[in-house]
């Protein structure tokens, strides 16, 4: 199976054969790979050089490679053929989701309001701090999906902005 991996600003193509061999950008890689923590951490030596890869978070995927943090994406060939990954924005509608669980202290907008990008639209209290959540895009508030004074889960839809 062929994969396209982005690590920070780098893009690499990895082929993993059914025999477990890797090729990278069509060159064979002599790597000794040990999974030291299941699905979390690998010790990888390549021609004597010792590396360690740790999955810091799944979603979004973030790797720690030898003490360097990297925003990472992996797309396999099937997904590539299907047109890649989908985003949160579609048809001029932008969603604001709770970035973490907490208490939705206040909504500063109501349905129908016009907002500018980055305008503070809600206050979420978590970890003893009030966090101003900002509009992810400019437009009209098409829908309010949560009410002030309630607890929300991380990732919960708070409001939708339509950019007309």
């Amino acid at each position: 199976m062929r994969y396209v991996v982005t690590l920070g600003d780098r893009r690499l193509e990895v082929d993993l054969g059914s025999d477990g061999r890797f090729t990278l950008d069509d060159r064979a890689v002599a790597a000794d790979v040990r999974e030291v923590v299941r699905a979390r951490q690998w010790s990888i030596t390549i021609e004597g050089a010792s590396h360690e890869v740790t999955v810091v978070t799944h979603d979004p995927l973030r790797l720690d490679v030898d003490g360097i943090d990297l925003q990472t994406s992996v797309v396999d060939e099937r997904a590539l053929r299907a047109g890649g990954t989908t985003g949160r924005v579609s048809g001029g509608r932008t969603e604001l989701r709770a970035p973490m669980p907490g208490l939705l202290k206040a909504l500063h907008v109501k349905e129908g309001d016009l907002v500018e990008a980055d305008a503070p639209v809600a206050t979420l209290e978590a970890m003893k701090m009030e966090n101003e959540l900002r509009a992810p895009g400019a437009g009209r508030v098409a829908r309010i999906a949560a009410s002030a004074g309630t607890k929300v889960e991380g990732g919960a839809l708070l409001l939708v902005i339509a950019s007309d």
Binding site: Y3, D9, L16, A39, V53, L61, V65, I68, V74
Partner: peptide
């Protein structure tokens, strides 16, 4: 966002990323 990554670390990171992706689908 642009980390100074050696070529070797980039290869290791790419292999790790693939192994992680595999572990998710295989599971």
């Amino acid at each position: 966002l642009v980390a100074e990554l050696s070529d070797g670390a980039a290869v290791a990171g790419a292999l790790g990323a693939v192994l992680f992706a595999r572990s998710q689908t295989i599971r």
